[in-house]
Design a protein around this nucleic acid. Structure first.
Length: 271
DNA sequence: ATCAGCCCCTGCTAGC
DNA sequence: TGCTAGCAGGGGCTGA
């Protein structure tokens, strides 16, 4: 599922691919994935790509734009000279945006949790979302994160997955970050010592950076804006590694459920 | 303010 | 072999 590194990868690729392009047409195959008022997007020129947490914004010169969330299985793929044309015919292609130069941008999504929403004022909505969501792990001090942890009795894994506490962390990087920090996901957040919070924050930054460096995790359905897979799935630390040896101590990784989410832990290394 | 529980949706898998 | 029930999960919403 696209988390911060995956969405950031797409953002950077869109920046190099579609800035300055004019939208000349749009086809919506499933209206559940496309939320819009009466005004269309034909004639709009793409000016800027923004990201907050797992949200993507495409700002037009007019100030209007798109908000995109890929949720579980969403893909944004830009047609290339000789690639990705198959998306035009694909069963799960929900929206097709055509640019002046004839390239098409495909919004593909099997489960349709994700969406594209037309916004009348991207700047306003972007600012509002930034205010609502927590900071990204590298944009918060250890002290401030500790303060957030101190006021909740929830399990630490639930807390770091809460987008209003930290933005951009999803199940993959939460699992791996907790393992790297040697921390049990069930630890009650308010019980963490300052040193533990610092270690966890650092570990989260580290796995997110690694995710970005490897082009993201494609264990499930994720591909980047060129339609290519990332390779972070080849180096998962604990995520989806039930029954395989812990990379530190060799004890078998077990799968538990925390806050309703699949969670993979080493019973020896994560206290 | 915090937080548990439900819902959205489709493809895959376990179990019969 | 073929069916179905259950599961996966990000985040919005509701109500306690």
């Amino acid at each position: 599922m696209p988390e911060l590194p995956e969405v950031e990868t797409i953002k950077r690729q869109l920046e190099s691919q579609i800035l300055g392009s004019e939208i000349v047409g749009i086809v919506v195959n499933d209206s559940r994935c496309f939320v819009a008022g009466r005004k269309g997007v034909e004639g709009e020129v793409i000016k800027e790509i923004l990201r907050v947490g797992k949200y993507l914004f495409v700002r037009f010169s007019s100030g209007r734009g798109l908000q995109i969330h890929l949720k579980m299985t969403g893909r944004v793929v830009v047609e290339q000279e000789t690639q990705n044309m198959e998306y035009a015919e694909a069963k799960h292609t929900r929206v097709v945006i055509t640019l002046r130069d004839k390239r098409r941008i495909f919004y593909w999504d099997t489960r349709m949790f994700g969406y594209i929403k037309v916004l009348e004022n991207v700047e306003t909505e972007h600012e509002a979302l930034k205010k609502k969501l927590g900071p990204e792990p590298w944009d918060i001090t250890d002290i401030d994160l500790l303060r957030k942890f101190k006021r909740t009795g929830r399990a630490v894994k639930e807390v770091i997955l809460d987008q209003n506490v930290l933005a951009g962390v999803g199940n993959i990087y939460a699992n791996d970050g907790l393992w790297l920090a040697g921390m049990n996901p069930r630890r009650i957040a308010k019980s963490l010592k300052p040193k533990e919070v610092a270690r966890l924050r650092k570990s989260l930054c580290k796995v997110l950076e690694r995710g970005l460096a490897t082009g993201g995790a494609s264990d499930n359905s994720y591909v980047n804006a060129y339609g290519e897979k990332g390779s972070y799935q080849d180096e998962f630390l604990t995520y989806r590694r039930a029954g395989e040896p812990c990379k530190k101590c060799g004890k078998l990784v077990e799968r538990i459920v925390v806050g309703g989410r699949g969670t993979w832990v080493c019973g020896k290394c994560q206290k």
